[in-house]
């Protein structure tokens, strides 16, 4: 069984229009690396360098099995087969 990664509308240009793609990895970082190897460029839309380390972009929300990863270890959040990863850009502005 794979990991299901749900892709938001704005990033479906990277997934040939797919709403959902298969993921692989044991942490969110690995899932994103794997995603980027299949859909080059998508990683850069999700993460950025902060103080020398990669971190999720401020206005990108990622949930593993409905838990916001900001509360479960961010990019180090554990992921296993059968999990669902949902990516949602913040709806925000000024």
């Amino acid at each position: 069984m794979a990991i299901e990664v749900r892709i938001p509308t704005i990033l479906r240009t990277y997934t040939e229009g797919s709403k959902s793609v298969d993921g692989s990895g044991t942490t969110l970082s690995e899932v994103i690396e794997h995603l980027d190897s299949n859909h080059p460029g998508i990683k850069d839309r999700l993460v950025e360098a902060k103080d020398g380390d990669l971190d999720l972009r401020r206005f990108i929300n990622v949930y593993v099995n409905d838990e916001d990863v900001r509360f479960t270890g961010g990019l180090d959040t554990s992921v296993s087969d059968g999990d669902q990863v949902v990516v949602l850009p913040a709806v925000a502005g000024g």
Binding site: Y63, D68, V86, L88, A90, V91, A92
Partner: peptide
């Protein structure tokens, strides 16, 4: 008064 953001948990429920 100068910023808005949907709560991340509410955002997931909505989508």
């Amino acid at each position: 008064p100068t910023f808005y953001e949907f709560d991340p948990a509410d955002l997931l429920s909505l989508y």
